[in-house]
Amino acid sequence: MTAARPTVLLTGSTGVIGASLLPALTARHDVIALVHRRRPQGATTCVQADLTADGLGLSTSQRSELAAGINVIVHCGGLTDFAPRDHTAFDNVNADGTRRILELAEDARVPVVLLSSASAVFEVPGDDLAARSMRAYGHSKRRAEELAARCSQPVAIVRTALLFAARNAPTAPRHQFPHALFTAMLQARPGGLPVQPDHWTDILPMETLVDYVTALTEAQIRGDATAPGLHWVTAGPARLTAADLERACVDFLREAGRPATGPLLADAATPQPRTHGMARVAQLGFLPPDQPDMPSHLNRLLLTQLTRTDVLEALSHNVRRCAPWAP
């Protein structure tokens, strides 16, 4: 007789992370996708709900039936748009939405894997639109983590940095940083990126995050005492510099027969008073060389460690998918 497979409740299954995580989870578990509008392919069951509504917009009977049928919640749903019309939307979705998911976990008496962000601990300076948006996003993630710390059920918080698109993803998410940045750099405007070459950013291959979250989900189902708490899932010492990004774009442009006519990075000696657009987002997304690496806890659950070669290969692959001249 075959034992029943555990059931995972997954939010955000049509988002950038959730769409990559769904197939990995369905390979090992039954998955109920909590959806708002779009329905993903591959989930065992879909339940329509709303993170911004009391009780997730479910009736009492729907909520009770859902709570009785799950073993763990993986919460990926959230708002990542860095230019919403109303910045309170970040709190409504990312913080209050998380509170409602945690309440469901308490009703169901199941553990949670919460996808957070490194933005939760970084205070973005500036009063321009890009800075205010990024700061509001970070604050909403910080509040979600604070709510998780008060939950009566075991919660594992995954704090990740930026992400490359998965190799098997149908398209690169060009509306999101860093892919919007790659697309802009491939337009080959000399000096178009106002970032110094040795400034760095942390971008993790999506496959690494999926492997870690999958292993963490299974640890939560097993009741592993080491699973709850904070998990930094980042590139860490395998971080990339602006010069790495420039080199990957220049190499691809040359290979594509569209060589750049000059450096893509701005002259460090030239003032760059950018206050909007991709240039400003890039300024805020890179850190100076004296800023230490982000923590990385990959060795807690993964047998193989991420190398700089792995990250550079992911960079090259993602840059190729962001060519602005491609159909």
Results as ranks from 00 to 15, higher is better:
Thr160Asn: 04
Ala156Trp: 12
Cys76Lys: 08
Pro295Gly: 11
Asp251Pro: 01
Arg189Asp: 08
Thr45Trp: 07
Ala282Gly: 10
Thr309Leu: 07
Leu25Pro: 06
Arg143Tyr: 02
Leu186Gly: 15
Ser116Cys: 08
Phe90Pro: 06
Thr201Lys: 04
Glu207Arg: 09
Arg258Pro: 09
His139Met: 10
Leu147Tyr: 05
Trp200His: 15
Leu230Pro: 02
Ala118Pro: 01
Val281Glu: 10
Val155Asp: 08
Ala67Met: 10
Asp198Val: 01
Arg321Glu: 09
Trp325Phe: 14
His75Tyr: 09
Pro6Thr: 10
Leu115Cys: 13
Leu79Tyr: 03
Ser64Val: 01
Arg274Val: 14
Leu21His: 13
Thr60Gln: 13
Gly15His: 05
His36Lys: 14
Gly277Leu: 00
Ala83Tyr: 12
Ser61Met: 06
Ser59Trp: 05
Pro273Val: 03
Arg63Met: 07
Glu65Arg: 13
Thr14Gly: 09
Thr171Ser: 12
Arg167Phe: 05
His29Lys: 03
Leu79Pro: 00
Glu313Lys: 12
Thr214Gln: 11
Gln196Asn: 11
Phe182Thr: 04
Arg39Trp: 01
Met278Trp: 06
Ala4Arg: 14
Pro111Phe: 13
Met185Leu: 15
His75Ala: 04
Pro125Ser: 08
Val74Asn: 06
Phe252Trp: 14
Gly18Met: 04
Ile203Tyr: 02
His179Trp: 12
Arg258Thr: 12
Ala323Lys: 01
Ile157Val: 15
Ala148Met: 11
Gly285Asn: 15
Ala266Trp: 00
Pro197Ile: 03
Thr160Glu: 06
Asn92Thr: 15
Arg247Cys: 02
Arg109Trp: 02
Asn94Asp: 10
Pro154Cys: 09
Cys249Leu: 09
Trp232Tyr: 15
Pro173Tyr: 07
Leu264Asn: 12
Asp107Ala: 14
Val311Met: 10
Ile73Ala: 00
Pro259Gln: 05
Arg222Val: 12
Leu181Glu: 05
Gly57Thr: 06
Arg5Gln: 08
Leu245Trp: 08
Ala19His: 12
Ala215Gln: 12
Asn318Val: 05
Gln291Asn: 07
Val47Leu: 15
Gly138Cys: 08
Leu216Asn: 01
Val8Met: 11
Thr183Cys: 05
Leu25Phe: 03
Gly262Asp: 02
His317Lys: 02
Leu245Glu: 09
Leu66Cys: 04
Pro84Asp: 05
Ser117Ile: 13
Arg308Thr: 14
Cys322Thr: 14
Asp267Val: 00
Arg258Asp: 04
Arg100Gln: 09
Ala215Arg: 14
Gly97Thr: 01
Ser59Thr: 15
Asp202Gln: 08
Asp267Ile: 07
Ser116Asn: 09
Asp81Val: 09
Ala53Ser: 13
Leu115Lys: 06
Glu146Asn: 11
Ala83Phe: 14
Arg28Met: 04
Ala314Gly: 11
Ile70Asp: 12
